[in-house]
Amino acid sequence: MNNEQQIIAVARKTIATESEAIANLAALVDAEFAAAVDYIFNSQGRVIITGIGKSANIATKIVATLNSTGTPAIFMHAADAIHGDLGTILESDTVICISKSGNTPEIKVLVPLIKTRGNKLIAITANRDSFLGQKADYVLHAYVEKEACPNNLAPTTSTTAQLVIGDALAMALLDLRGFSSKDFARFHPGGSLGKKLYLRVSDLTSLNEKPQVHPDTDLKDVIVEISEKMLGVAAVIENDSIVGIITDGDLRRMLTKRDSLKGITAKDIMTKNPKKIDNDAMAVEAIKTMDTYGITQLLAEKNGTYMGVVHIHNLTKEGII
């Protein structure tokens, strides 16, 4: 077996091992899991998640997922906790402790301190019979038969299982909260995901010039308007309403068909009944329309009045396509 074949074989075996372990987790989700989720849902405090080593890395990811889906959460490193960071935990907080073995020295020191404070303790562990498993109020069982590591040492399958249990916990809470796409947008206002959920056409048209001409506007003035506004298009407007559109492509096609440009006005070359979008529509609707008709600009209107142009470059700049 050459290097390439060996690499592919090891990678596939790793994925298969972890995939099988994740599939087996479904059977471990039980009434105790549901009770833990219900307790967090009905509590007035935050979720404090702690761990040591690779489990601490998984804890930070679960914290991020919970925070982004409506459950306030804070990461507390297990080693730091026993050296002053226990002050992070408030009376109403729920503590989740992540540990594969449930028997590490730091966990054995930390767990009694948490219990003494009276906080509910939830364990994510592969070993129900461990020190952590025995002391926890709820155990979320993240058992794995073996690590993907050929020496069965490096945390691989076990950390993947912890992460999946954390995702299951977060999604169960999301469902109980009725957390909607609008809620998601409020928690992700700066990212492309959030923008897809809250950005409107009006947010984009307001950034652009507003190219427009009258049906009787002379060709030269049409060209000047399109050039100066730098959007490759001009709306043909009569009584504040859109009656047509002229693109730079229309101009090029017109030049190839006509020998004389004398006397040509906007109405002679405009496309009637152009594709339009409501200025209050979501920006993602503009993307769908552009994609459907193979165009790069859309004229926006509100109550029949021309409001401006949304260009595909606006959507690209915002990172939503």
Rank of each mutant, 00 (worst) to 15 (best):
V224S: 04
K196R: 15
G166L: 05
H188W: 03
I165K: 00
P155C: 09
P211G: 02
T125A: 08
G118F: 12
S130Q: 01
G190Q: 07
R186P: 00
D175K: 14
L176R: 14
T159N: 09
H141M: 15
L193S: 03
A185T: 02
D218F: 13
K120C: 12
H188M: 03
I223L: 12
T159E: 10
A170C: 10
M171L: 14
K229F: 07
A161C: 08
D129C: 11
L219A: 05
Y198D: 06
R117I: 08
E145I: 08
A168C: 13
R117S: 14
L169R: 05
D218H: 15
L219S: 04
I124L: 06
S181V: 15
T157C: 12
G190V: 08
S181P: 12
L173K: 01
F131H: 11
L176E: 09
V144Y: 01
T116C: 13
M230Q: 12
A168G: 09
P189C: 04
Q212S: 15
R200S: 07
D137C: 05
S130C: 05
T217R: 03
N119A: 09
T205K: 03
A123N: 04
P189Y: 02
F184W: 02
R128V: 11
L219V: 07
N119W: 05
L174P: 07
K135E: 13
K229N: 14
N208H: 08
S158I: 06
S227G: 04
D203L: 08
R177G: 02
A123T: 06
L121T: 02
V144R: 01
L207M: 15
D129R: 10
A136N: 01
H141L: 15
V164Y: 04
V139E: 03
M230G: 10
P215L: 02
G191Q: 00
T116Y: 14
S192I: 06
I122T: 06
E209K: 14
L176I: 09
P211A: 03
Q162W: 03
K229Q: 13
N151F: 14
D137L: 04
T160G: 12
A170D: 02
L121C: 05
K146W: 12
A170W: 00
H188F: 04
H141W: 15
G190P: 05
C149W: 09
L231E: 00
D129I: 11
R200Q: 13
D221E: 14
D216F: 10
E225D: 12
E145D: 15
A185W: 01
H188Q: 06
S206D: 13
L140E: 05
L197W: 00
G190I: 08
T159V: 11
L163T: 10
C149P: 08
L193R: 01
S181Y: 15
D216K: 06
K120L: 08
A136K: 01
L174H: 10
A168P: 05
M230H: 11
D129N: 14
